[in-house]
Design a protein around this nucleic acid. Structure first.
Lengths: 200, 200
DNA sequence: TGTAGCATGTAAGCCGTTACATGATTGA
DNA sequence: TCAATCATGTAACGGCTTACATGCTACA
């Protein structure tokens, strides 16, 4: 396909989906985890910057990772006990993760924000319902910030978690700003009343 | 399929993908647009809160919308000219859009932020490359903020665009905070040097 | 003259979702 | 004892992407 033989130095430039690196990243902290636990951990940490995929997707991704030798599988079901398979990152997995971190193209952040979109179309909305939604969104942000604050509190200590702490601070600023912006919007809607394109 | 006839009051609770409502929302401002223009408009406005889908997806969505009678299609190719099909929102389309705005479930915002994720794994990264990426991300945010500021400037005047102006302000706060958070991170990395879990 | 932008699609494939299915363990 | 949580999957499907294909128009 290429015009000529690839010049030396051009390596394999194929990458796994980012979600795979999120799983590897979680495992890179050293613990062996089950698929279920991986999701709990994702929900407790990476979800602040990477929406956690469904369980079924995690299991499928772990399958692929295992087939590729990037994680290893271990059956830790007690005899007659509950099925339990743990996953750990392999040396190849760690290498691939490092390769991604250093050399994969920088994708832009993707944001899908239904609350902001509804506000954008405020002139078509029922004023009360819009207001209720904005209040609910503010509550949701409060919950998120509380969770993140708790995470941040737990992130003091050794160097291993210095970067996660940095990200937690970043998120606190980021979501804090969204919280206050949402509050501003609620205030501006309240004082001016519903804004209508067509009077009457 | 249902156990019994639906009780009265329970309406059709099926929804189109949100991207369909983004297209309807863009068309709700009154202009007839081509698929291509729709994408340009999405890139210039809604992308700040809803990542614009690929062209091919827009065309497919417009097809479905047209088949459902929510938009109408008009061939505006000049004779022997370039092919050009414009789309306009119908009354049904406006009704369905209003229905979504008022009654569809509030989905949580989805965020996928590779830059934040890389920072999270900073202990595995090459320090120089990570720094370069963060600098590039700051530049990207500067560009985004400049674009958004321009949008905001154009959004003064009639009530029809009062809500979009509100959203632009929200975005300015939001992305401005991310910009300053990114700056903070760069500063903290610079003063402390690369943080390593394993010394040496 | 040639390139960038305008304009419209098709095809293939992957990521991720929801719904469904199963069963063990913990604690109220 | 019953419900919530732990734990693991399969099946079907849909949204969205990339790659490919085509051709016109404006402009440097």
């Amino acid at each position: 396909m290429s015009v000529a033989d690839e010049p030396t130095g051009v390596k394999d430039e194929t990458w796994l989906p980012t979600t795979a690196y999120v799983l590897l990243g979680l495992l890179s902290f050293g613990q062996r985890l089950t698929g279920y636990e991986l999701r709990q951990w994702a929900l407790g940490s990476t979800r602040f910057f990477w929406a956690a995929p469904a369980m079924s997707q995690i299991y499928r991704e772990l399958d692929r990772l295992e087939r590729g030798g990037l994680v290893d599988e271990r059956d830790e079901s007690g005899d007659a006990g509950r099925a339990r398979t743990t996953y750990g990152i392999t040396d190849e997995g760690l290498g691939e993760l490092r390769r991604w971190i250093d050399d994969a193209p920088s994708d832009e952040p993707v944001i899908r924000h239904p609350a902001a979109f509804r506000l954008f179309l405020g002139h078509l909305a029922d004023a009360d319902k819009l207001r209720t939604r904005l209040l609910a969104h503010r509550d949701w942000l409060d919950g998120l910030l509380a969770d993140l604050d708790e995470v941040r509190t737990g992130l003091v200590g050794d160097d291993r978690i210095a970067y996660p702490a940095l990200v937690a601070d970043w998120g606190l600023e980021f979501f804090g700003a969204e919280r206050s912006a949402t509050d501003d919007v609620i205030g501006r809607i309240d004082v001016s009343g519903p804004i209508r394109a067509d009077p009457g």
